[in-house]
Write a protein that binds this DNA or RNA. Sequence first.
DNA 1: AACCAGGAGAGAG
DNA 2: CTCTCTCATGGT
Length: 223
Amino acid sequence: MPQLSRKQLLSLYSKLRSHFGFLNWWPAKSNDEMAIGAILTQNTSWKNVEKAIARLEANRMLSLKAIAEAKLSKVERAIRSSGFFRQKAKRLKSFSTYIVSNYGGIDSFFKRSKEPRKELLSIGGIGKETADSMLLYAGNRPIFVIDAYTRRVLSRVFGIDAERMGYEEVQRIFDVLPASIDLYKDFHAQFVELAKNYCRKKPLCSKCPVRSMCKYASKAAST
DNA sequence: AACCAGGAGAGAG
DNA sequence: CTCTCTCATGGT
């Protein structure tokens, strides 16, 4: 019993896509860099993550192998700009150590793991959103990533109480879509772009690219 | 100058 | 299972 039809979702995507254009999200040079970025961006703006990635690269630690071998304090220093640096340094190390020692590298992890999602979640510091981001953007699995922005847009545009729903429950809304990796990647990016620019605390409904199909916008206009 | 950012986990109920 | 609190920094 899906709450939204494929047509509704694709119509939303179409509007976003023609407004924002194709968003080449997460253009990491390697899957290592992508996975590292996924951990660093937890509850942190991407801008500060870029600085941390640049510093890791400058110190030749922009790979799981290098992080697994580096001292914790050295990782901490490099990623300080991304906030939560002590936690994240531990998370980077435990993740890197797990992948490198069990699979040799992230590419063979994605190739050989039978249940990659469950396995990622078993590693400390990797929650559902981070795991799904890695699976979609690095592992090329058709898994829809749910974040706070996605929930907010679903809530406002369609009136779905996605902010109180469980993660997988929100994820199931997108089961009606064709299992296209490129669609999932770009759709998620479009959600973020819409939420950051329009669905804010102080919403900009009058200029919103999807106001014609948005419940919140029409409600805000009539009152 | 409060307030949030592309969350996760431990603890409590 | 769901709710609450903590983690810690830079930008607006």
